[in-house]
Nucleic acid binder design. Structure first.
Lengths: 333, 333
DNA sequence: GAAGCTCTTGTAAGCCCTTACAACCTGTTA
DNA sequence: TAACAGGTTGTAAGGGCTTACAAGAGCTTC
């Protein structure tokens, strides 16, 4: 069943059928109705490939993220997919993994599908990255389609960034801990990504401002896995800290669990703040205080920009969203 | 840059270029090398739309699931996407939501993209469903492309199912609890889906077999949200149970948390078993015993079947995988 | 030296749409 | 009544690829 048969059955030309498909104002209402009825009766759907060829677009957006099994990215993907679909676009998903080379391949590969735009989630790039040239592939991609980064920042033609102001968020989280009298605040992170570095800077700024020296031994990196955190704490016979600021809820949840086992009272002996406000946070006992990095908000911003951009309108190339601390039970009141 | 230009530059016909693109054995190695070099030099990529038109396939698989933000489905999507990609296929994702009408629309919509196969995750359909006709759209879809169900069962031409044997898994989970002397086992579920019903049947069978009467007041349904569980427990001044079997880890985690708050010793006073062995389970304290429903295994099976099917080979239309109980700290040894 | 074979290449039709341009119809206007 | 405008429809030329079929090139064989 193709456009010719429909045209035949409706007694019109294929041009008219095509116009009906595209709801062109050039067709009279009467004809439209007739053609539509024939299409429905034969439940005809235009061939998207042919359509793609003609329009040079299949109304598809590429979504690249390191790992959808991560709750943060999953929420982003869910949000983006829904909204974009409602706007008439489908999403091709590509879980790249975290390695830079794999990310590069991901973008290159997905571009071959002739997507209309590319969204990269959790990219954590930055211009001031010491290895800045490793994000060059993003700029390459931007030559072909508009590129939207969620939580990554790269300056460039046709590149649009929506970021959580991690620096500020970390600053205020650390300040909160300082305000409640904590002086030995452990900074726990799982990566040296741009956003992790921003968090660290914010943390250090808050300490400095409060006149508290930044102690190298209180800045620790480990894998975001519960057993890594367990091992970490096992190796530290006595944890010389009265608070923890973790760059991921998973890390914070681990600290909470194993510190409690060790007999620490939370938050009295040890206050804890996580990051991302994931589903984990409310499952913890006591509930974990966490910085909400506002994925949904970031996604909305990206979607709005994307719509504007696809309509050829100008778009801000950088938007920051303030992260906000959700106070639960692992911090003082 | 199109196939004509490449042909021109390489001094061959477009047919030859096309054959090189498709790595046809009809082309001499010498010519292949030459054409390939020209393609690389101009970094040419064949237009997928035109290719799709010609081959009637864009090497794309449709992935429909109610909600990727759910850890179980996210793991499935991640696994499927990776393996299918390695096999040369990309995935179009569609998060349908749970409503039946929305699922129907999801499948109908995604089919229009002329995908080569459809994978439906967490469908929880069944032939013996009282509302069996509501899954008719799956059979409709199967007329167009092979359909693979993960954790759903519908008999039909071109429909292939991979399921966790929830009945058995639940049976053995309940048996485990009975073996350790529990007699008042609460069955806690968040849905009346096919697989939830299977779990309930398994649970009841175990009780009956042990000569323990099934108490209606110990079968409870509630939303899979931590606060729903909290409210549920609040409404039950004294929980007359010595064990809980929950159909989702989220529910189990909630019970664990609020039962502990109430002073119950776990597992001494209350043993708990969850389901799906999600990331939550190990974050709980004590770590949650949980039935591993083996998403990864199910995905592998689907992928293997899918490959066979796409090559026109015969495939089992139903494969069961045994769920297995992961014993952690919320059950006795 | 002609026939026949295999290997390789080219020609052209086809896949199913979109859309520029031409043409037609109807109703006004001068 | 002719010219014209506006609204509607049709014709035909793409768009970039695949592939059936034809054909040429280089061998071998008798």
């Amino acid at each position: 069943m193709n456009i010719y048969e429909i045209a035949e059955l409706a007694g019109v030309s294929i041009a008219t059928v095509s116009r009906v498909i595209n709801d062109s104002p050039l067709v009279s209402e009467k004809t439209k109705l007739r053609v539509r009825r024939v299409m429905e009766e034969n439940d005809y759907t235009p061939n998207v490939f042919a359509r793609g060829l003609g329009l040079n677009s299949m109304k598809t957006i590429g979504l690249v993220c390191p790992d959808v099994a991560d709750n943060y990215m999953a929420r982003a993907v869910a949000c983006l997919e829904r909204d974009l679909r409602e706007y008439g676009y489908n999403c091709i998903l590509y879980c790249s993994g975290y390695a830079w080379e794999d990310r590069r391949i991901a973008v290159r590969t997905i571009l071959q599908k002739r997507i209309d735009a590319l969204v990269v989630i959790g990219s954590s790039y930055a211009d001031d990255d010491p290895d800045a040239e490793r994000v060059e592939y993003i700029r390459e991609a931007a030559k072909q389609v508009p590129v939207f980064l969620i939580n990554g920042y790269i300056r460039g033609e046709n590149i649009f960034c929506a970021l959580c102001s991690d620096y500020e968020a970390a600053y205020s989280a650390a300040s909160e801990l300082l305000r409640s009298g904590r002086r030995k605040i452990l900074f726990l992170s799982d990566s040296h990504s741009y956003s992790a570095n921003q968090k660290r800077s914010g943390y250090e700024a808050a300490l400095r401002e409060a006149g508290v020296p930044v102690r190298e031994d209180l800045v620790i990196y480990t894998r975001n896995r519960i057993d890594s955190v367990r091992d970490l704490l096992l190796e530290m016979p006595q944890l010389d800290a009265d608070a923890v600021f973790a760059t991921e809820d998973g890390l914070a949840a681990g600290v909470l669990k194993y510190a409690k086992r060790r007999g620490a009272a939370v938050p009295k002996d040890l206050a804890i703040i996580g990051y991302n406000n994931s589903e984990l946070a409310v499952c913890c006992d006591p509930e974990l205080s966490s910085v909400d990095s506002r994925v949904d908000r970031l996604c909305k911003i990206v979607i709005d920009s994307l719509k504007l951009r696809l309509n050829g309108k100008p778009v801000n190339d950088r938007v920051y969203v303030k992260g906000c601390l959700i106070r639960r039970m692992t911090t003082d009141f």
